[in-house]
């Protein structure tokens, strides 16, 4: 075979082509063989790496798909929680409103009770003050009357002391002194 090829090559003029478009047969043979060798070498040496690369890519994509699925699950869970929380917020709002109403009612009741007590206390104090004022007025009136009486008594007594009365008083003095011992 080799001898045939060599003979063929030797019979050919390398500077002249046989066809304007197609290559020379030998070139096709060589090219075909080289292509087979290159393809074989590629399959033999690069195939595993490529296959490994594809497998890794597949795994990565699968992992990403799994992660996405997990994220979706988590998102669903979060959405569920949020929806639940929203429900809770409404309940809490209602509860707080109810509690506020209760507290307001309690404050109102307490305030009313306190005001009633304060009014009663003020009334009692006013009554006490009134009594004290009445007492003071009464005392002041009594003092005024006493003062006027103290001022008026000597005047009245002097006016009623006639000479006869004065003489009677002298006689009474003499009698009482004389009867003393």
């Amino acid at each position: 075979m080799i001898q045939y090829v060599n003979a063929l090559l030797a019979s050919e003029d390398p500077t002249i082509t046989h066809h304007w478009l197609l290559p020379e047969t030998a070139e096709i043979v060589y090219g075909g063989l080289a292509s087979v060798i290159v393809v074989g070498a590629l399959i033999k040496f690069a195939g595993p790496a490529i296959k490994k690369s594809f497998n890794a890519r597949t795994e990565k994509i699968q992992k990403e798909l799994d992660d996405a699925a997990a994220a979706k699950v988590n998102a669903d869970s979060d959405a569920k929680n949020i929806r639940a929380a929203l429900g809770d917020i409404a309940g809490e709002r209602a509860r707080m409103l109810a509690e506020a109403d209760t507290q307001a009612a309690a404050v109102l009741t307490e305030g009313r009770t306190r005001i009633v007590a304060e009014v009663a206390e003020l009334e009692a104090k006013a009554e006490t003050d009134l009594s004290a004022a009445r007492g003071r007025s009464s005392d002041e009136l009594r003092a005024e009357i006493s003062m006027l009486a103290a001022l008026a008594t000597p005047v009245v007594v002097e006016a009623t002391l006639t000479d006869q009365t004065k003489n009677d008083l002298i006689e009474a003095f003499i009698t009482s002194v004389g009867a003393a011992r």
């Binding site: 002298i170 002194v177 003393a180």
Partner: peptide, 11 residues
């Protein structure tokens, strides 16, 4: 009166 008073006081 003076006489009687003097007597009373003397007493």
């Amino acid at each position: 009166q003076e006489t009687r008073l003097a007597a009373a006081l003397a007493k």
